[in-house]
Design a protein around this nucleic acid. Structure first.
Lengths: 189, 189
DNA sequence: GTCTATAAAGAGATAGAC
DNA sequence: GTCTATCTCTTTATAGAC
């Protein structure tokens, strides 16, 4: 608050561009698309685009951030994060471009100097304990095997969710959400 | 057989270059390294490199192929592919550059026009049934739960192996092989 | 503060000499 | 079969109009 009008307008424009870019990547996919192409589809010039994002990698990172934000709103959590994870995977079938972008950027983010590095580090740091908590809740409720290590199973489920996206990208008949549900079914008492 | 000397020499040179490139990527990692840089490290000019590989993507694909070939020799299969998978994951700790290259190329290979597309399609088509067979063998031997669907669990284990590499790339304290072993332990009778 | 126009730096890829 | 030289297209940076 107390922001100057022009500043707020700049933020709004950035959000507009980001939403448009998210839409482009969701539909058309990420196939080494050039920034010029993104700018054109978003309806802005290349420098117009770069006024808001310092580099291509920053834009791609911002797109993934925006995606998480949008998913968080449209797929409201029931409090149980394993259910949420499965709903997200079901939703991912509709956004192949974002699936590809996610995997590509996750690989590149290994480099600590990459703009997406903090995003991915923070993301796993948030997701893993939350998922482990849901597993522990199910154990407490008596619906999950007591010999599961919640931290271990959380890491396994997230790795499965990430890895199954690679197989699905190559063969669309793979049922990402279903495979996760079936694995979990093996852990129920 | 009946190959002309110059042809055989060309093949040998290609193998030389490939081995050198594999070594560069294993050690130094794949961080958007330029072909010029690879050529320099391999000891050849850029056109000299491109004489043997039609494009950068073709070279990267050939490197992954070569890696599989080398691993197949140095990590001889015991006949049980789950054991082999775990040994490969243990070995992967020593070649972070190849792990990153694998994930990056797997994401890009979604595009059917990408040179790595057939490689990945064939790879999963070979690995999944082989792993499913090992799981079935263990069920027959009475050491694995009978209610497992071998094809489902094979897909899950491969996805876990792929996905855990992303987490390990971001946090080297993740025990890739150990996490797979611990998951399998939950499926033993 | 925002955008148009433009150019610099570097990548992959190619032509053609030797 | 290998290199020098060059071309095109990408990302990135800057100058200046509105």
């Amino acid at each position: 608050m107390a922001e100057r009008g022009s500043y707020a307008k700049g933020v709004a424009r950035r959000e507009e561009i980001l939403t448009a870019a998210l839409d482009v990547f969701s539909r058309e996919g990420y196939r080494g698309t050039s920034l010029r192409e993104v700018a054109k589809q978003v309806g802005v010039s290349l420098p117009g685009l770069m006024h808001y994002f310092e580099s291509k990698e920053h834009l791609l990172t911002a797109i993934l951030q925006k995606r998480d934000e949008v998913d968080g709103e449209s797929l409201p959590s029931t409090g149980d994060f394993l259910d949420t994870l499965i709903r997200i995977m079901r939703h991912n079938r509709d956004v192949p471009g974002l699936v590809q972008l996610f995997i590509t950027l996750a690989a590149a983010a290994e480099d600590p100097a990459h703009p997406a590095h903090p995003f991915f580090v923070d993301r796993y740091a948030a997701v893993l304990p939350t998922l482990a908590g849901s597993i522990r809740d199910r154990q407490d409720a008596g619906t999950a095997r007591a010999d599961l290590d919640p931290e271990h199973i959380a890491r396994v489920l997230v790795a499965l969710a990430d890895g199954i996206q690679i197989q699905w990208a190559l063969d669309r008949s793979v049922d990402m959400a279903g495979d996760i549900e079936r694995l979990w079914a093996l852990f129920e008492v």
